[in-house]
Amino acid sequence: MAETKHLAILVSANGYGHIRRQILIATELLKQNSNLRVSFAVTEAQHRRFKIEIENLGVRAEAVVGVTEDSVRWRHDPNSYTDANLNGWESELKSNSPLATADFMMSDNLVGVLETRPDTVLSGSFLWHEVISAHAASNEACRKFVEREINLLRTCTPRMICNADLATPAVLSLTNPVLMPWMVEELLGSQLPDLDSAKNNQRVAILVHGGGTRTLDDRVRTIAELLRENGHVVYTDLEDDSMCFDYLDSTWQKLGVVICRPGVGTATECVKWRIPIVLLHDQINVEAEFVATRLKQLRLAHECEFGSTDSEVPSLIADLLSPENRVSSLAPFSSLKTSGIRDAANFLTKLWGLDRNF
């Protein structure tokens, strides 16, 4: 009988896109390799949100909660970044021997692990120093973080699994990028949106989504109220909203448009369900703005001057939801390759020799 190998997956504390992607990759890895077990290092918030999904992976998967709590994330106040909340997770990892000494290590997208585990495979489509560098001149902890991350990347040149359409210039130049198609959970034939189906004309609900940074909450609320006044069914990601989005597949299938600050996780869900995107810009978020530019180039996203007139937003939404425009607005989604989860698992299986352990 083949020896069981242990994979430790470190997940950035920022939002839910990182952990969602890793659960999907781990699901495929466990399906392919009965000689593998997986530990997810996650935050308390991530565990609350994805506890059931991790438990559904069975006895070969576990959550290790709290290790990555003090890891880099978006913060509203640049002065609040400290060495402790940027890098504190590293001492937690070192003190957790089962994680630190796992046979394989994957990190989404915490680069500091390369200090002790240069064999780590990174995952993600951006690097945190691209974000934190905006504060390097005014915050010493940020300056040191940026310098150290760049040095580790140049020293180790780690493999980094990334979305080929969304990978940032730093990912392409400082890592050994493993370019993947969109990392979309495969749908059953009955779940796939049909461009010509009358059912698509019934997908008229709207999601206004500001993202986990919470910097756009006021704008989300204003836009949602405007659209509701115009008779639309509108969900938001505001926890105190009576129409707070539940992220269930059945609710995604009701959506005809998503208005969002386009993090990679939200953009990936829109690709999965073929939902046109209207961009909600966050100029200080360099990663989201890069993704926004790429989504426009791919013709998946549309611009709207929020706040210019009360009529422009409802007019654009009406155009995107209209049956006569539906096919043309969804056509760009059909050309995208969406096998990234399976392709990533295949790559890792071969890299780690899991297919040779039987």
Rank of each mutant, 00 (worst) to 15 (best):
L248W: 00
D355A: 10
L127M: 02
E90T: 14
L114I: 10
T293G: 15
A13Y: 00
T268G: 08
E90Y: 12
D70T: 04
S339A: 14
L348K: 09
I275K: 09
V113T: 11
P158R: 08
I277Q: 09
S125T: 11
D217N: 15
K337T: 06
L227A: 03
F306I: 15
V146Q: 05
P314C: 11
T349V: 12
W352N: 04
N85M: 09
F333D: 02
V258D: 12
E62S: 12
H281I: 00
E186Q: 15
V264K: 00
L127F: 05
A141F: 10
L152E: 14
A41L: 09
W252A: 07
S322H: 15
Q46R: 12
A134H: 07
V67C: 01
S339Y: 06
V178N: 01
R21D: 00
T155W: 08
D355K: 04
A2I: 01
W182H: 13
L195G: 11
S12F: 00
V233T: 10
P332I: 06
K272P: 03
V291R: 03
M1Q: 08
R214N: 13
L153N: 12
R148G: 06
E303R: 05
A301Y: 04
Q46S: 13
L321A: 05
A61S: 10
R159V: 00
E90D: 12
P323L: 07
D194L: 06
S250Q: 08
Q22P: 02
I9H: 02
V59Q: 10
E115R: 15
H47V: 04
P262D: 06
V257E: 02
E44V: 03
K199F: 14
R274D: 10
G211A: 05
F245I: 02
N151T: 13
T175N: 01
R299H: 15
T27H: 09
F333K: 03
N163D: 15
G189V: 10
N200M: 06
K272M: 07
M105A: 09
L320C: 11
V64M: 03
T309M: 00
R117C: 10
T68Q: 04
L300R: 04
N33H: 11
L188Q: 06
F145C: 01
A224N: 04
